[in-house]
């Protein structure tokens, strides 16, 4: 058990994942972070993007979060996601459509639009696509 730690991923609506893992790779505000057991306490904001969880025994699972916080304690990692889903559930077509829509909204300068919101939507859609493509690549390799 020395090589693993507990990971909890929760979103406001539900508990997404809870279990013993070997490694977590998350996209933090300042770049991607890999967390191994015994990491120093750390608190970071997460960017929309994939979270890779490597289970005991090396099996890998992907989650998608659209922002949130991650707390790291030496033996437990808590991810408070704004919205989380298992990456397998992501739909590429829907993500692409969301991206197009966000882009369109972003470019329509004439309309009274909340730019920060459009930017956030765009970032989320792009992050979803990134997650899907990462998954796709891995599937191609394997």
């Amino acid at each position: 058990m020395a090589n693993s730690f507990t990971c909890n991923i929760v979103s406001a609506e539900a508990s997404i994942f809870s279990g013993s893992v070997e490694q977590i790779i998350a996209s933090g505000q300042m770049g991607d972070l890999g967390i191994l057991p015994g990491h120093a306490p750390l608190l970071t904001e997460l960017q929309p993007g994939p979270i890779r969880v490597i289970h005991d025994g090396g099996k890998e699972e992907n989650f998608f979060v659209s922002g949130g916080f991650m707390e790291v304690q030496p033996d437990v990692v808590t991810i408070l996601a704004d919205a989380a889903s298992r990456a397998g559930d992501l739909d590429e077509a829907a993500a692409e459509e969301a991206r197009q829509q966000a882009l369109k909204a972003f470019n329509e300068k004439s309309s009274e639009l909340d730019y920060t919101r459009a930017a956030a939507e765009l970032a989320e859609a792009v992050a979803q696509l990134r997650t899907i493509q990462q998954l796709r690549k891995k599937a191609g390799k394997g």
Partner: peptide, 20 residues
């Protein structure tokens, strides 16, 4: 006796987290 590492910085992070 201990403190977190903060990314990006403690103030912005705690502001957001506590409001959340």
């Amino acid at each position: 006796s201990w403190d977190y590492l903060y990314e990006p910085d403690a103030k912005a992070l705690l502001d957001n987290l506590l409001v959340r």
